[in-house]
Design a protein around this nucleic acid. Structure first.
Length: 596
RNA sequence: GGCCUUGUAGUUCAACGGAUAGAACAAGCGUUUCCUAAACGCUAGAUCUAGGUUCGAUUCCUAGCAAGGCUACCA
């Protein structure tokens, strides 16, 4: 129990002693004191005035007096209106630091014995990954790591959308215009090669539409009757009939795409424990339709189509199986939900999918809950906003995207440029420099995409390149590198970092106390970020921590400090900060360098 | 039309219903004889509108305005 808890307990006792009121502990909470006021923690008394029957000031003063005499950690207090600001005794800060510093499990909460699956990435195999996917992938990875750190057993899953009309479009275009082109012959990455034909399909398809419209067809008719589209539809039918020629082409082109995806994933630094393919799962779910009919959750219309009525839940009626007995999107999603559970007995299932599918998942989850699935309450759609360009929404079909591979390449090149300009690569080998650029470029990119609340849509302006200063990945990486330099020197001159000496310290600067307060907050932030599925909470925290450390770095001497204990303490404080930054950044999938 | 999401400094983002709404970038000024100036300090600048609930509203409720999304027997 640290002193924050003992202060809360003290407040509870104070209410009992001063006002004969018993207040549950969970109703009491402390906030960090604002910078302008003296103190470290603030208790807001307004909500409790009914217990004291006194003015806010008088209530706060009585509580403060009680705490000052009865609770050792509270050294002093002041009252501003209804705000009770508490000044914490110095030795308490040292004690708290020692606790954090000596903890062996810092940054990893104890296991809660629950399994959760995080499904993310889930690409289409007809086109390369773009900026939107980057947000998805980084978000999914970070959330999975956060859940792990907060005590879950996590299974990362990728559901690859490898079949359907969109893949057939690329295939048809390839048959017409490909002339046997391969990744090897063209020098293109496999996913880019296939994506090229997807774009090609669309432009020829549009030309055909124009041609038909000029012969007098309406726009809708032209869309339906264009020969290329008919061909793609025919190809999908053949695929479903296991036509050998179609399957061979499909396998060949998908193979190219997977090779391309794998290298992209590797560079992104993300991974999966399991991969599901829609070509294996798209027929699932029909038995659930039967089950739903038997349970009265679904109903049949005259033509045999099966529907679910969600009007009581505030939604519409929704089709779950076509009249001809074939599946729709949600049919296979129901099946896949069960499959995930059968494979892994998960308690929770997180879907990292863009917010344009909010309605779809709302329906899916309501259905699975109505069907009484044990994992029903644990279904969660991590809905994130699209990444928009200044020109509007990205459209892969028209080739209007920020390509993931290109963007990563650009970020690394920019990092290299900055680093050289600052003259920071003295003593680096070629390989070390290359590795550093990679760490910095990707760090900047990941941080940029993760620092925004997931559910908000964000704007990406390619002209205004991602920053390396201020609230950025490199800023935090830089703070780490600075500390690493201090630690190297401390080791060189043999600073004793054991905690015994810290007890002799009798002056603590404000920035040092604030740092301890922040370091102590780390695990609470991990827990919060995991509960909210929001890596942005962690980026915000890490920025605050790095910021505070840099203030400390500028204000407080370390190796000029003559008091050995104090010097050792400051090195230890730096060490703990570096450790926290490194661990926190790794939860976001971001590496930190020892030098930069 | 119906439903969902989002509106905060010039820009990008913060703020369990709490104090004088915080940062960063951009602008202006200053700081390199301990450890890395990709840093630190200082100055200026914002809650879409109108009501309501509350001791207290950026936050909750209602209406409006604006942006985006969904509303296929497509996936």
């Amino acid at each position: 129990m640290n002193f924050q808890d003992s202060i809360l307990k003290g407040i509870q006792d104070a209410f009992a002693s001063c006002f004969q009121a018993s207040i549950p502990l969970e109703q009491l909470s402390l906030a960090p004191t604002k910078k302008e006021f003296e103190g470290s923690y603030t208790f807001v008394v307004f909500p409790f005035l009914k217990h004291s029957q006194l003015s806010p000031e008088a209530t706060a003063t009585q509580l403060g007096n009680y705490l000052k005499t009865e609770v050792g950690a509270v050294k002093n207090f002041n009252v501003v209106k209804g705000f009770l600001n508490l000044v914490v005794a110095q030795e308490e800060w040292i004690n708290l630091f020692n606790q954090v510093y000596t903890s062996t499990s810092f940054g990893q909460l104890p296991s809660n014995g629950q399994k959760v699956m995080v499904e993310y990435s889930s690409p289409n195999t007809n086109k390369p990954l773009h900026l939107g996917h980057l947000r998805n992938n980084f978000l999914g990875y970070a959330v999975a790591e956060l859940l792990k750190a907060s005590g879950y057993e996590v299974i990362k899953a990728n559901l690859v959308n490898d079949r359907g009309i969109h893949i057939c479009k690329s295939m048809v275009a390839y048959q017409h215009f490909g002339q046997g082109e391969t990744p090897e012959s063209s020098g293109l990455k496999g996913d880019h090669l296939v994506g090229k034909y997807y774009v090609l399909f669309d432009s020829h398809y549009k030309d055909q539409q124009k041609g038909l419209i000029s012969t007098g067809q309406s726009e809708d008719e032209a869309k339906k009757n264009a020969p290329l589209l008919l061909e793609a539809q025919e190809m999908l039918r053949k695929w479903e009939d296991q036509d050998l020629i179609v399957l061979t082409l499909w396998n060949k082109m998908n193979g190219w795409v997977y090779a391309g995806f794998n290298s992209t994933y590797q560079r992104m630094g993300i991974d999966f424990d399991v991969t599901y393919f829609e070509s294996n799962t798209y027929l699932l779910g029909k038995d659930i339709v039967e089950e739903g009919l038997a349970k009265g959750v679904f109903f049949k219309k005259e033509n045999g189509a099966v529907w679910v009525d969600l009007t009581e839940e505030g939604l519409d009626e929704k089709l779950v199986l076509r009249g001809d007995g074939t599946s729709v999107y949600i049919t296979q999603d129901m099946g896949t939900a069960d499959l995930k559970y059968q494979d892994h007995e998960i308690k929770k299932s997180v879907y990292v999918v863009g917010n344009e599918q909010d309605y779809h998942f709302d329906i899916l989850f309501k259905i699975m809950r109505k069907l009484g699935r044990s994992y029903g309450p644990g279904l969660y759609h991590l809905s994130y906003g699209m990444v928009d360009l200044p020109t509007g929404k990205m459209k892969s079909r028209e080739g209007m995207v920020v390509d993931a591979d290109e963007l990563m390449e650009e970020m690394v090149a920019t990092a290299a440029h900055h680093t050289k300009e600052l003259g920071k690569i003295e003593g680096f080998t070629e390989d070390q420099a290359t590795e550093l650029y990679e760490i910095l470029g990707l760090g900047a990119l990941k941080y940029f995409l993760l620092k925004v609340d997931p559910k908000k849509r964000m704007l990406f302006n390619p002209q205004e390149s991602i920053e390396f200063q201020g609230n950025t990945g490199p800023f935090i990486q830089y703070s780490h590198a600075r500390i690493a330099a201090i630690l190297r020197k401390a080791e060189q001159i043999g600073v004793d970092l054991s905690i015994e000496g810290f007890a002799y310290i009798n002056e603590l600067a404000e920035t040092e106390a604030t740092l301890i307060q922040l370091l102590n907050d780390f695990e609470r932030k991990i827990k919060l970020a995991a509960e909210e599925y929001s890596p942005a909470i962690l980026t915000q925290y890490l920025f605050d921590l790095a910021k505070e450390y840099n203030r400390f770095y500028a204000e407080i001497p370390i190796f000029h400090e003559k008091d050995q204990h104090l010097q050792a303490f400051r090195v230890a404080l730096s060490f703990q900060t570096a450790k926290t930054i490194k661990r926190g950044m790794s939860l976001l999938g971001i590496k930190v360098p020892e030098r930069m």
